[in-house]
């Protein structure tokens, strides 16, 4: 959230790099009956090409990055977490209390990892929610000397589903995680059915909030991006692709000049745009809405431009709020 509301941030380096230039790691796990030196049962967890021996039932977990909200919501046995400001606005009272209470062993950036604090937490597992390229900012040997390390991060925004599953799996809270997943899938299926006729054949476009309008640009998101992936589960189709696709999130979003607003969104039947969790409009989006070019867009003239909150959700728990927001915003389409 933080990363999307305030231009360019989200751990300016770590997360931006994470989502623009790196890939997620495939992982798999297999139960085993081995034990570590302390006698704790272990199992083999595969992350990419690397196999990591982790506790079969972790009791003291340190989480960073995207793993933080997932493991808080799944009631993992956390003993330390990184700062995760972008997710704070989405946390309910209980989650926020847990987040505030847990010792912070790292900042927003991977480079702000506090190794001594992690060691003091005495974890038996460290789950890094950052993609592999960002690991260059981390002294992995030092971390591995403290506890087994599982590092998994998303390549594109919509991969939060797979990545969060891997985090929960490693931390031994897959059961709790899957309950949230099932609830989300049921809600999404219900909404998809509800809006099936209304959304049929419509071309969607999305204006995101991650960007810096001082550069005269806006964020255009396509299928698979932060602002679109939950709406896709409801049946919306954000057609098109970036003119110059890049790695990571650049494959599902772009930053055209404001001059290109009509070129980019002129053919969209419906336009959605990201708003903050309290419904307020981020500066990056407000600059677009204030433009005369925006007011000239066919979808806007037909009053088919809708705000969507909680677009930065990276857990099933948070994404439930996204579905609620989408349901509220798309309601006028039922009258078409």
């Amino acid at each position: 959230m933080f990363a999307r509301r305030i231009p360019g941030l989200a751990g300016a380096v770590a997360l931006a790099v994470a989502l623009t230039s790196c890939g997620s790691s495939d992982s798999d796990s297999s139960a085993g009956d081995a034990s570590d030196k302390s006698g704790q049962k272990t199992r083999e967890f595969t992350v990419g090409d690397e196999k990591v021996s982790i506790p079969a039932d972790p009791e003291r977990v340190v989480a960073t990055g995207y793993a933080v909200p997932t493991l808080i919501q799944a009631d993992a046995p956390l003993v330390g977490i990184s700062s995760w400001k972008r997710g704070e606005p989405m946390m309910d009272g209980e989650e926020k209390a847990a987040y505030d209470k847990l010792p912070k062993v790292a900042g927003e950036l991977a480079s702000e990892t506090n190794y001594e604090a992690i060691a003091e937490a005495e974890p038996d597992l460290i789950v890094l929610g950052v993609p592999v390229p960002v690991l260059g900012d981390i002294d992995m040997d030092r971390l591995k000397s403290i506890a087994p390390v599982v590092a998994v991060g998303p390549m594109v925004p919509s991969e939060w589903r797979e990545v969060s599953r891997q985090h929960a799996d490693a931390a031994g809270v897959l059961d709790t995680y899957e309950k949230a997943e099932d609830a989300y899938d049921a809600k999404a299926a219900e909404l998809k059915k509800k809006y099936a006729d209304a959304l049929d054949g419509l071309k969607f476009g999305h204006v995101g909030s991650y960007g810096d309008t001082s550069k005269g640009t806006f964020q255009r998101e396509f299928n698979g991006s932060w602002g679109t992936n939950a709406a896709q589960d409801v049946g919306a189709d954000y057609v098109g692709k970036p003119k110059e696709p890049g790695p990571g999130s650049r494959s599902v979003s772009e930053y055209p000049s404001l001059e290109e607003l009509s070129d980019s969104l002129g053919a969209s039947d419906v336009i959605t745009y990201s708003v903050n969790t309290d419904g307020s409009v981020p500066d990056a989006v407000q600059a677009v809405l204030d433009s005369k070019l925006w007011k000239n867009l066919p979808a806007v003239k037909k009053q088919r431009a809708f705000p969507v909150a909680f677009t930065e959700a990276a857990t099933y728990g948070d994404a439930m709020k996204t579905l609620d927001a989408i349901d509220k915003s798309f309601a006028p389409l039922l009258d078409k």
Binding site: G8, G216, D290
Partner: peptide
């Protein structure tokens, strides 16, 4: 402070784009 860093880095590269608004 990363937030301060972000605010500054966007300002620190002189540009006219978007400033006309």
């Amino acid at each position: 402070d990363p937030e301060t860093f972000d605010t500054y880095r966007f300002w620190s590269v002189g540009t006219l784009a978007g400033r006309e608004q």
